[in-house]
Nucleic acid binder design. Structure first.
Lengths: 205, 205
DNA sequence: GTCTATAATCAGATAGAC
DNA sequence: GTCTATCTGATTATAGAC
C-alpha cells in the first residue's frame, strides 16, 4: 500500500511537472515571438492544448506565467555559466556568454521583456527564484569583468556596471532580428558581427 | 471680403495645426514612457485636454496617432542631419548623430517602437512620410558609413548595413535607462559611456 | 470639430460541474 | 485538475446632438 501510494503520487507529480514544462516552453516561445503584452493567455492555452482555466490552476496570473518562463531561462543561463571551461580567460568567458545569449535569441527562445512594462516588472522583482538567479549571474559576470579589466583585456575606462548592462543588452538587441530579416547572413555570421561590434567597436582598430 | 476670408481660414488652420502639434507631443512622450501597447487613447485625450472622439477626427486610429509621432521625430532627425557642419569627418558626423539620438531618448522624447509589434509596423510601412524619411536618413548615414570605411576610420570587416543597424539601435538601447535608474551618472556621462562602447568596443584598445 | 454617451470587442480571471 | 460557460473591466472606436 505504502509503496503503491508513493509510486502513484510520484507519477502524478511527474505528469504535472511535464505539463508545466510544456506550458513554460510555449510561453517562452510566444514571449520571444510577440512580447508580453501581445501574448494572450487564450493563445497559450490553445497552444498547450488545455483549457484556459486549467492554466490558472498552475499559475495565478499572466505575469506569473511569464515570470516562470524567465526563471527557466535564468536557470539555463546558470547552467551555461557552470559549463564554461576553467582554462578560458575571463574575457573569453564573457564572449562565450554573449554568444550563447544571442544564439538563444536567434533561435526564438529568449523571452523579450519590454523594459518599460510595469506589471511584469513588479511581479519579476517579487519573484525570489528570478531575483536570486539574476543576482547570481550578475555576480559571476561581474567578477569576470573586473578580472578582465585587471588583466588589461577590457576597457578600464568603463565602470563594471556599464559593461555588465552592455552585455545583458545583447539579449534583446534588435540588430539581430534586423539582420536576420535581411536574409543575407547566417545566424553564425550575424552573431559574429554583433559580437565584433560589441567587443571591438565600430571604429577601425 | 476675400482677404478677410483668407485670414480667417489661415487662423483656423493655424489653431488646428497647433492642436495637432500638442497631440503629437503628448503621444510622443507617452510612447517614450510606456510604449505603444501600454499607451491608451483615453490617456492621450485626457492629457491633451480634449475628448477622445475629437482625437479620432484628427487621426483615424491609434496606429496613425503613433505613426504621426514617429514622422515628427523623423523630421527632427532630418533637420539635425542638415545642421551638421560640413567640415566634420564622416565618422564624427556619425558620432554626433548617435549622441543626438541618445540625448533624445534620455530626455524622454524618443518613442519606443517594439520591433515585434505588427499592427503598428504595418501602419508605419504604409505611411509614405515615415518611409520617405527613413529612406532619406538611411541613405545619408549609409553614405557617411561607406566614406568612413574608405577613409579607414571605421571597421571595414563589417557590412555597412550592420553598422547602420547598430547605430539605429542606440535609439532604443536599454543600457541608457538602466544606467539612468542607478542614478550614479549624469546624462552626459551616460551618453559618453555608451558612445564609447558603441564606437570603441568593450575590449581594451 | 467638439462634446457626451455608448457600442463593440477583446482579454484576464473565475464559477461551478465533473 | 480539467473542462465549459461566464463575468468583469478595460480599450478602441463611433453615433449623434450642438
Amino acid at each position: 500500500m505504502a509503496t503503491s501510494n508513493v509510486v502513484k503520487v510520484s507519477f502524478k507529480e511527474q505528469m504535472l511537472q511535464a505539463r508545466e514544462d510544456a506550458i513554460i516552453q510555449t510561453v517562452n516561445r510566444l514571449l520571444a515571438e510577440k512580447g508580453f503584452e501581445a501574448m494572450t493567455v487564450d493563445e497559450v492555452a490553445a497552444d498547450v492544448g488545455i483549457a484556459k482555466a486549467s492554466l490558472y490552476k498552475h499559475f495565478p496570473s499572466k505575469e506569473d506565467l511569464a515570470a516562470a518562463a524567465m526563471v527557466s531561462v535564468m536557470r539555463r543561463a546558470q547552467s551555461f555559466l557552470d559549463s564554461l571551461a576553467d582554462d578560458l580567460t575571463a574575457l573569453e568567458k564573457l564572449r562565450q556568454v554573449v554568444r550563447w545569449t544571442m544564439g538563444l535569441k536567434l533561435a526564438g527562445e529568449m523571452p523579450s521583456l519590454p523594459s518599460q512594462n510595469s506589471s511584469l516588472r513588479t511581479t519579476l522583482m517579487g519573484n525570489r527564484d528570478y531575483m536570486d538567479g539574476l543576482m547570481d549571474v550578475s555576480d559571476r559576470l561581474g567578477a569576470w569583468i573586473e578580472l578582465a579589466q585587471e588583466q588589461g583585456l577590457l576597457n578600464t575606462g568603463l565602470p563594471a556596471i556599464a559593461v555588465l548592462y552592455t552585455l545583458f543588452a545583447r539579449a534583446c538587441d534588435p540588430v539581430l532580428e534586423f539582420l536576420k530579416m535581411g536574409d543575407l547572413y547566417s545566424d553564425d555570421q550575424i552573431i559574429d558581427m554583433v559580437l565584433s561590434t560589441c567587443f571591438d567597436g565600430l571604429r577601425k582598430r
